[in-house]
Design a protein around this nucleic acid. Structure first.
Length: 176
DNA sequence: GCCAGAACTCTGG
DNA sequence: CCAGAGTTCTGGC
């Protein structure tokens, strides 16, 4: 698999976006470029990866607007392979409305899994390589806690804040 | 290769 | 508090 990536500054730190010809396969937030590049390579050990900072696809701009709280559109093309179970969970996460959250148990139930699968759902969230586009920050624990986040709990909290303060949220807020 | 234990969980004893 | 349920990964042998 061949992929190109770029790293830019964002409202939440450095933002790395990698994509194949078909779609986005890796998105991460961090502080340290070499560490983020290493993370990308360890997720795709056999891929042919090169850096390309030229004005690539419009996806990076879309993610930056989202992080500034200016856009609620995360319907970007994905090309992130996972196991059958992982892809089911990721699809479930993407169906959570912007600005709201679900517990791991609710996500399991929505997918037709037994509630005892909550932990397996958490594991699938933990191993997703595409932050933001797969909104695993909308998953919380049943006791109200935030559980963990691969890119830092503080960022998870900020992402929820950004979504809550988005101007267009009034209609969905009433449903919750 | 196989098995134990951990990981972004939750429930019931 | 502890174990167990459903999935994947890692580390030890």
């Amino acid at each position: 698999m061949r992929m190109a990536y770029t790293i830019v500054d964002s409202a939440l730190g450095r933002l790395l976006v990698a994509a194949t010809g078909k779609g986005i396969c890796f998105v991460s937030l961090g502080e340290d470029d070499p560490a983020m590049e290493a993370e990308l390579r360890s997720d795709y050990p056999s891929a042919d990866i090169r850096r390309d900072d030229s004005a690539g696809p419009p996806w990076v701009e879309a993610l930056l607007r989202y992080l500034r709280g200016e856009s609620d559109d995360l319907a970007l093309p994905l090309d992130a392979p996972g196991t059958g179970f992982q892809e089911r969970v990721w699809a479930g996460l993407r169906s959570i409305p912007f600005g709201s959250t679900r517990t791991y148990k609710e996500i399991a139930r929505a997918l037709g899994l037994p509630e005892t699968a909550a932990r397996a759902v958490g594991r699938a969230c933990a191993t997703n390589s595409v932050s933001l586009v797969i909104p695993c920050h909308r998953a919380r624990r049943a006791d109200g806690g935030l559980a963990g986040y691969r890119w830092g709990l503080e960022r998870k909290r900020l992402l929820i804040e950004i979504e809550k303060s988005f101007p267009g949220r009034a209609a969905t807020a009433l449903i919750v």
